[in-house]
Amino acid sequence: MLTVEKLKEWGADTGEAMARCLNNEGFYLMLVGKEMADPNFEKLDTAVRSGDLEAGFEAAHSLKGVLMNLALTPLSRSVVTITELLRNRQVPEGGFDALLEEIARRKKELNGLNQ
């Protein structure tokens, strides 16, 4: 089961996020649970891999706002990076693969906290 402690241990800035959620633990955890199922993760991955950087940017940009509001820092850090690259249509050395994998790995970690 997902808990605030687990999220904090994972690296989320739970203090900041809890304040935003009016210190309502249940509310915060509900939102995080909801975000785990955010279709934008899938969209980002598919769009970037198929070279549609614009669609990729839109998905990344949406994810960025939400992840930062929930202060899911380990995941938002790489989403912020990819958002800025995509905004400028800038392909990093070696392509987006490393970043996409990092995001997938962090997402998996997050999902794992729900066990």
Binding site: R20, F27, L31, K34, G65, V66, N69
Partner: peptide, 9 residues
């Protein structure tokens, strides 16, 4: 706001 989380907060 189209994002559920942002809207709910």
């Amino acid at each position: 706001e189209d994002e559920f989380v942002n809207r709910e907060i």
